[in-house]
Amino acid sequence: MLFKRISKKILVATIALIVIALVYFFPNGSDPEVYEQNISYIEANKNPIYLKDNNNYIARTNIIMKETETEEKVKEIIESLTINSSKKDYIPNGFSALIPEDTKVLSLDFDGSLLKINFDSKFKNITIQDEEAVIESLVYSLTEISSIKKIMIFVDGELLTRLPNSNKKLPHYLTRDYGINKIYDLNTLSDCTITTIYYLSKFNEQYYYVPVTTFSNNPSNKIEIVINNLKGNSIYNPNLLSYMVNSVELLSYELEESKASLNFNSYIFDNFDDKTISEEVKYTILLSLKDSMGIEELVLKVNDEEIDKLSIES
């Protein structure tokens, strides 16, 4: 009796399951229901930013940014450059921000290509070791925005004319001419040349770019100086790398306003069969020529054959 009752219950349950399965798995012929999805996708927008690396260089890395409008982007960059800010979790490993913690931006003023930033007094809490680096980090990060060419820094409404600790003079307008990670290699007063070379460095197998501005006595053309330095002929620090081998020869070059065309021998190839130049070599050349000479478009040739064309994204 008990066995019959249990069996009956099992049978009923099994039939119910089968019926449910039939309804669920076999369509009834009508159109499936469309669920309206209100999902907005935030496109990961990575922007270049200049932060301090583990070797105390101000280095170029990338950070995810949500904002696209210029003013909001500027605020987001400054926030990212501030120690312990709301953006601290977005800072890549191996890098650190420099603007003193809790520094507030009192106002921003856009005047054509000039950006005026008014910080509160906490900005002057920079250490003597980092004060030059803070300026370099701000200038280089903010001028990555194409509409910004120069900045002025104010503290509580007063123009910052000298660094707070060393009393070093600051130019009226801060542009990339200020230089970054500066090295002075001058022996005489003649033929002073300023070039910014982008080397490579790495942290945890991730490569990034380190720009170094050198003041040197070199009568050569800046293009030749850039290529010679990237060939490893004068790398000042073992933490700075270049993938351009010493046997690379710059055979000829042409300049036309902001466009440079460089013709190399085949040793510039990363792969002789595919005739490809490595990304690292291409971009160290492009970034170096951009900062040293204002080049925005680069054509790379090998034995007069055009291999690649790069441009600075606007």
């Binding site: 070093k168 003079k169 130019p171 500066k182 002075y184 001058l186 040349t193 003041f215």
Partner: peptide
Amino acid sequence: GRSQAIIELLKLNEINI
């Protein structure tokens, strides 16, 4: 000397090239 003075003044941003 003069060369070293130039370098120091450049570093201090007192003069520009």
